[in-house]
Design a binder for these strands. Structure first.
Lengths: 347, 347
DNA sequence: AAGAATTAAGTTACCCGTAACGTAAACGTA
DNA sequence: TACGTTTACGTTACGGGTAACTTAATTCTT
């Protein structure tokens, strides 16, 4: 199949053509199944392709400007947060089945990293970009608008996106959770999350959450872990810190379910019973929630679907189909049983 | 900064050069900081670069064969498994800081997917590849050997890799766990994991595990969830199935900590106390273990470090430094307290 | 059987940068 | 002053494919 001797440098179409005794163009036509060659010629070319182990150089094709590439740049804040890992999985699986490749960028929640990554990835002539979040640096915005390729901003639904947007309204989601917890009779509510320099979706949820709680006469005590990844341990120690600073909170809402689980563990270790002594509400309905004894109060989003939808939108756009500017994939509040029942009213 | 009018097609170096009143070559020299131009010329060129929003087309550079690309193909089985998400994060962060980009491929644990992905990604002339696992299809092997670029097989340490290898010896890790559980006095040991068509590291751990257990007079009952991702819920119901089929197991070892946590939750719900009624041992020392009440018996691997090491090896190799063929990053057995104490011997 | 149409090719030009080489002007030196 | 050197450019060629065009041979049509 493959000549061990050709290990060094790459086999070009010209070499295949020469070996098959035809012109580059004919070999190219055979490889692209374009027609206009005899069966005998096809056979001879394919024989040499096989024999020399020829792999086409897609750079040349794209470079020639005849086609666009099959790269899609995908930027994600981090992968330690299961939420984003799932979104990425949804994106890449869908793109992969249609012959596109994700070029990854982990922005670590900073706009500067994102800007650098955008600059680099654009120089590779991607077919499109999928970015997490709606906030970008000014230069990033300029580059994106100038690039002339589809750009989808995911996660954080943006009513006036650069180009397209898929996600949910985080403010509303936070607001609904706040209203629900107030309906359950809580008044002194803690929030445990992480904090980054850049405004993000979690910030918007918190804003909505506070608005709902405070609007209904409640009070929110925040505990933000600086520059941390929103996962189990920050949830655990964030809860410890919160309770040390404000021992009278009757319910804690977390940035996501992983943090909520960390908090759950802390409370259990402290001997607090859920939801009698304290209510716990997460966000995101992560897989871990599927095995807990009590259904975790949370907010469901299909992360995989979000990723897939974004990828589908990208693919549709690339094949020239009409595509909506915004796609709201929605969320569902999960009452669960780690907070009191709303029927019982103010305990 | 940017002309809104240039929105349509890309600005080329030739356009910048023309606008600045110099030749392409001079503009190229300015952009590459090569010297050989006056300060006045530099200023004029940069002014136009800024004005036209010029972004270099790296395809052209690579294509010309003067440089290699900064793509590194990275294949990972799936991202639902936290382990691989962490490895990928380690890889991409390290690569990113050195100006390289990961081109992702999710192989879904199948060699056919991997082969397709390899073919595609090679056509983009990557600077190197990082693959998960040591098993590849014959055609994939041929392509990899022929590609003439660095290839690192990670996760599963391979004493005779295609090129380079970073990971741990999974057989040994399984063996050590088996020996440890036997030392704790368990004899009838369950194993809960997932099952895929392709041989993989988990299979090797299981082999080592069985060898140790059976070699010391114990017995292993396996429960493999078909085609599932190794996460919480399969751990939960896998445990249910295992206990239904073999109620006499005194200890269960899981493919990873996420599954072990699922099992832990099932046991708790069943009213089984850990480790009195049944021992639980995971693998991987995942973040969730950091907040559990009892230290989970597990096996520690630094996933992030694994990814970073692989990336470092790749970068070193690309800059021509000598690099070892194999790098064993090691593992550490974590005794934990979800199995009996080995001192007490056979209970 | 002659011209038209089709088939199976080959040839040329181009995509966008950069290496390699060429050149004119300014400068340095004996 | 004459010649070598440096500076600051410009020109040409190339890489690996493909679009667009050309050409030669074969087949079809009337």
């Amino acid at each position: 199949m493959v000549e061990k001797t050709s290990k060094n440098s790459k086999v070009s179409l010209a070499q295949v053509a020469r070996a098959a005794g035809v012109s580059k163009m004919t070999a190219s036509r055979v490889l692209r199944d374009e027609g206009g060659y005899s069966e005998e010629t096809r056979r001879r070319v394919m024989e040499q392709v096989d024999h020399l182990g020829y792999l086409p150089n897609r750079l040349a094709t794209v470079f020639a400007g005849d086609q666009s590439s099959t790269f899609i740049g995908v930027s994600i804040p981090d992968l330690g947060n299961e939420v984003f890992a799932q979104v990425l999985e949804g994106i890449d699986r869908k793109l992969g089945t249609f012959g596109y490749q994700s070029v990854l960028g982990l922005t670590q929640h900073t706009l500067a990293e994102e800007e650098n990554w955008i600059r680099t990835v654009l120089s590779w002539q991607p077919a499109g970009l999928i970015l997490t979040g709606r906030y970008h640096s000014q230069r990033a915005n300029d580059m994106l608008l100038n690039a002339g390729i589809p750009v989808i901003e995911i996660w954080d639904l943006n009513s006036s996106p650069l180009d397209m947007s898929v996600g949910i309204n985080h403010f509303d989601s936070g607001f609904d959770m706040g209203r629900y917890l107030m309906a359950c009779g809580y008044r002194n509510i803690g929030y445990v999350g992480t904090s980054h320099d850049t405004a993000n979706a979690a910030t918007e949820r918190l804003t909505g959450f506070c608005k709902a709680v405070e609007g209904a006469g409640g009070h929110v005590v925040k505990q933000l872990c600086l520059h941390d990844t929103a996962t189990y341990y920050p949830g655990f120690y964030g809860t410890e810190q919160l309770l040390a600073a404000a021992s009278d909170v009757d319910c804690i809402h977390y940035q996501n379910d992983a943090m909520a689980f960390g908090g759950l563990q802390y409370c259990e270790r402290r001997g607090l019973s859920i939801p009698e002594d304290i209510g716990i509400a997460g966000w995101g309905d992560l897989p871990i929630a599927s095995v807990l004894k009590r259904r975790l109060t949370s907010c469901h989003i299909s992360h995989l679907k979000l990723g897939q939808s974004a990828a589908e939108m990208m693919l549709a756009r690339l094949s020239g189909e009409p595509v909506p500017k915004c796609l709201d994939i929605g969320f569902t509040l999960i009452p669960g049983s780690t907070v009191r029942n709303p029927d019982r009213g103010t305990a």
